[in-house]
Structure formats: C-alpha cells, structure tokens
Design a protein around this nucleic acid. Structure first.
Lengths: 110, 110
DNA sequence: AATCTTCATCGTAATATTGCAATATTAAAC
DNA sequence: GTTTAATATTGCAATATTACGATGAAGATT
C-alpha cells in the first residue's frame, strides 16, 4: 500500500491534510519562515539559508508550491517565491475554529 | 535517504513540523474532527466512522498521540481518546502569527 | 473458565518521501 | 556565441508511510 485513500474523505479534510502535510517537514517550515522574514523577494538565497543541497531545496519548494502554500514568479533567471496568503488564512481559520470549540467544551473528559 | 535531517533545524521548527506532519493525512484530520464533535469520550467507534480497518485506525491514533495531538486514557477495555488542547493552541498561535505578519506586510511582491 | 469485545502489535506488501550527484535549462553577462 | 549564474529535472539509494490480515493481550460477560 503506502497510498493514502483520499477518496473516502471530504474535500475539506483532504485540503487541510494536504496543507498540513506540506508543512510537515522542518525544512519547509524553515522556508516559510524565511519567506516571511525577507522583505524583498529575491529568494535565490534560500539554498544558502538551509543546510540542504540545491536540488533538495528545489524539491521542497516544489512541494510547497503544489500544495498551494507559496507561489513563484520567474524574473530573469531568478525566481521570486512568496507565501500564498490565502492558504495561510485557511490554516489560521481552521485551527482557530478548533481551538475556539475546544475552549467552549472545556473537556468533560480525560 | 528518506530520513529527515532534523538536527539542522530549530526545536520550534521541528515541533511545528511534527504537529503538521501528524495532521498531514485526511484520516487523521477526520479523527480530530470526530473527537471534536463527540461529547462523550467513548471513542471506540472511531473505527466505524472511518473507511479504514481497525489496525490502520489504531496506527493513526498512535501517530496523533506520539505527536502530542491527542491523549488516551484506558478505561476498562475501552480507551478514551481526547484532543490535547495545548497542541491545538500552539498551532493556532503559530498560524495566527504568520497570518498577522502577512497582513501587515501586504505583499510588495509577486 | 470459556467467550466476547476492544484495542494494540506484528509482519509484510505497496507506495511515498528525503536527499543528493549529475545533468539539463534558461537567461543574463561578457 | 561562449561563459556564468540560478534554478529545475532526472535517476537513484535509503528510509518512511500507509494499509491490512493475523494474532495477541486484557478487561467484561456469560
């Protein structure tokens, strides 16, 4: 096996899982944090920021992009990668909602 | 390889990545949502809620637990699994913070 | 005590991920 | 047009994940 049975879950569940999965690696968290920190988007130096080889970083960027967490614009022979705000808003809303509901419940269990 | 190079990243980055990774599967998202919805914690019927075999569900629960997203108390021969609120608060805070910073930035790029 | 119920673990097959060296691609610089 | 610089792609080895049948452990039921 090894293949996730996505068919059986709702679109929303799959969407959140995809976003979470893409962030489920410290290198990709580090990339997001770097993109958040940097003002200009001359993002060629992500490789220098990370302790990983260039192809590996490129692959992580690709995964973040295909999950919709970042977008990349070609600009000459450099590429400008940026955080896709919409995706982060979704995550914020999702976890905010859960946290709020948990607060209300105030666990009558465990 | 296949093994993540966690040593090179900060504890915080690894922590968030671990939480995100654990949520990076629709079945585990579904489990969390079910735990959130259910009032009582007679959680033996998670298996019935999901389109997966019992050992698979058990394994997903184990992963959620080892990531610190849920906790489980043995109660007779059933187990009461509940959401670990602290973990959800961390996620909320993390993504809330990023979303806020993005809002302030108002992208001068891409 | 034999049985049932609930859940965990083991073993294993199929597939996915991680990481990198080597190699391509593409555009700017010369 | 050749070189340089920045990024992507390919191919591959090591490891991890996903899923499930079979089996085990342990309390509850009869």
């Amino acid at each position: 096996m090894g293949a996730t049975k996505t068919e059986h879950f709702t679109d929303k569940q799959n969407e959140i899982a995809t976003l979470a999965k893409a962030l489920g690696h410290p290198a990709r968290i580090a990339i997001m944090e770097y993109l958040l920190k940097v003002d200009t988007c001359i993002c060629g130096d992500i490789v220098n920021e990370l302790p990983l080889a260039q192809p590996t970083v490129s692959q992580h960027l690709k995964e973040l992009k295909s999950a919709g967490l970042i977008k990349g614009d070609i600009e000459g022979n450099t590429i400008c990668y940026c955080i896709e705000q919409k995706a982060l808003n979704k995550l914020q809303a999702y976890f905010g909602n859960i946290a709020t509901k948990l607060e209300k419940k105030k666990s009558n269990c465990c």
